[in-house]
C-alpha cells in the first residue's frame, strides 16, 4: 500500500520548478530582453511607490511582461484543470473543457462584441469584451444543459450531454462564422485573432480576475478529487461509495464553466491544452484526480508559457495567435499519445 507516495512522488515539485523557470524565461525574453537587474529594481521601485522613475525596460517588465507571464500561467492552469475535471466527469479521455459549449459560446459573444460594437459606434470600455464572452459562454452552456435534459432527469445522461454539446458548439461556431463573414476587415481580423487565442491583452486587472477564478476553482476541484476518483468505477458504483453523483456533476460542471468562461473571456479560445495536459500526467504517473488537478494546474501553466514564448518570439516583433502554436504542437503530441497502446489497452 505504500506504493502511493512512490507512484505519484516527484512530479509535482518538478512541475512547480518548471513553471517558475518558464514564467521567468517568458518575462526575460521577448521583442526586448529584460535584464534581471531591471526586474529587481523595477519591483523595488514599484513597491516603494517610486513608479514615476521607471525606465522604459522597467515599464515593459511591470506593465506588459509580468502580467502577461502570470496571466499565461493562470489561463494554462485553468485549461489544464478544466480538462482534468471534464475527463473525469465524462469518464472519457478524449473530452476537453470546451465540450459543454462554453468556449464556443464565449467566442460567439466576443465576435458579437467586435461586430456590433463597431456597428453601433459606441465605445464600451475595456470590460465589454470579457463580459460579452462570459455571457456567451454561460448562455451556450445553459443551452446545452436545457436541451440535453440534464436539468430534469434525476441522472444526467453523459451521452446526451456530449452530443448536445457537439451540436451547440457547431451552432455557435457557425454564428461566429456568420459574424466574421459580414464583418468589415479589421473586425474580422479581431475575430480571427480572438478565436485562435491571444494573451496580448494581458493587464493587471485580467490577472486579478482570472487569478481569483483559478484559485477558487482549483481549491473547489481538489475537494471533489476523491469523489471524482470514485466516479471512475461508474455512476452507480460511486453512489454505493456514498458519493452524491448528481451534486458532484452539478458542482464540477459549474466549476469548469467558470474556469473556461473566465479564461476564454480574456484570452480567446486556446485549443488542445485542456485535452493534452491530463493525458500527459496520466502517462507520467497515474490517473488519481488529486494528482491530475494539482499537476494539471502546473503543467497547463508550463505548456502555455512555452507556447506563448514561441508565439511571441517566432516572428518578433509581431506575434502569432497562441492557439496556432498550441494546435500545431498539441495535435502531434495528442496523436502520439493515442498510439501509446500500453497506456489505455
Amino acid at each position: 500500500m505504500s506504493g502511493r507516495s512512490r507512484q505519484y512522488g516527484g512530479v509535482i515539485p518538478a512541475l512547480g520548478i518548471a513553471l517558475l523557470l518558464v514564467t521567468l524565461a517568458s518575462i526575460r525574453w521577448g521583442a526586448v530582453p529584460i535584464a534581471l537587474s531591471d526586474m529587481r529594481s523595477a519591483l523595488g521601485l514599484a513597491l516603494s511607490g517610486g513608479g514615476d522613475a521607471l525606465s522604459l525596460d522597467q515599464r515593459i517588465f511591470l506593465e506588459i511582461r509580468l502580467p502577461r507571464a502570470i496571466l499565461t500561467a493562470l489561463v494554462g492552469a485553468s485549461l489544464g484543470v478544466g480538462g482534468a475535471l471534464m475527463q473525469a466527469l465524462f469518464r472519457n479521455p478524449i473530452v476537453e473543457p470546451g465540450l459543454v459549449g462554453t468556449s464556443a459560446g464565449a467566442a460567439f459573444g466576443a465576435a458579437l462584441y467586435f461586430v456590433m460594437g463597431a456597428a453601433l459606434k459606441v465605445h464600451m470600455g475595456s470590460w465589454a469584451l470579457p463580459i460579452a464572452a462570459c455571457t456567451g459562454g454561460a448562455l451556450s452552456t445553459w443551452m446545452v444543459f436545457r436541451l440535453s435534459g440534464a436539468h430534469t432527469a434525476g441522472r444526467t445522461s453523459v451521452v446526451a450531454l456530449l452530443l448536445t454539446g457537439i451540436a451547440i458548439n457547431a451552432l455557435f461556431m457557425s454564428g461566429v462564422g456568420f459574424l466574421s463573414y459580414i464583418a468589415r476587415d479589421p473586425q474580422a481580423r479581431s475575430i480571427t485573432f480572438w478565436n485562435l487565442g491571444t494573451l496580448s491583452g494581458a493587464n493587471w486587472s485580467a490577472v486579478a480576475i482570472v487569478g481569483a477564478s483559478t484559485i477558487l476553482c482549483v481549491a473547489a476541484s481538489l475537494r471533489y478529487a476523491q469523489p471524482l476518483n470514485a466516479l471512475m468505477l461508474g455512476e452507480e458504483e460511486a453512489g454505493y461509495l456514498g458519493v452524491d453523483v448528481r451534486r458532484l456533476k452539478a458542482v464540477v460542471l459549474l466549476v469548469n464553466v467558470v474556469l473556461v468562461a473566465v479564461a476564454t473571456a480574456f484570452t480567446g479560445v486556446i485549443a488542445f491544452v485542456g485535452l493534452v495536459v491530463p493525458h500527459l500526467l496520466r502517462m507520467l504517473r497515474g490517473a488519481d484526480n488529486r494528482f491530475l488537478i494539482i499537476g494539471g494546474a502546473l503543467l497547463g501553466g508550463v505548456l502555455l508559457g512555452l507556447a506563448d514564448m514561441v508565439a511571441r518570439l517566432l516572428i518578433a516583433p509581431a506575434e502569432l495567435p497562441i492557439g496556432i502554436v498550441t494546435s500545431v504542437v498539441g495535435v502531434p503530441v495528442f496523436l502520439f499519445l493515442l498510439r501509446q497502446r500500453r497506456y489505455y489497452f
Binding site: R4, Q7, N229
Partner: peptide, 19 residues
C-alpha cells in the same frame, strides 16, 4: 465494473475505503 482510466490495483481497492 468498467474502469474508465488506468489505475493500479491498490488504488481501486482503496476506493472501497472512500466512505
Amino acid at each position: 465494473v468498467e474502469l474508465a482510466f488506468p489505475l493500479r490495483v491498490w488504488e481501486v481497492v482503496l476506493m472501497g475505503r472512500y466512505p
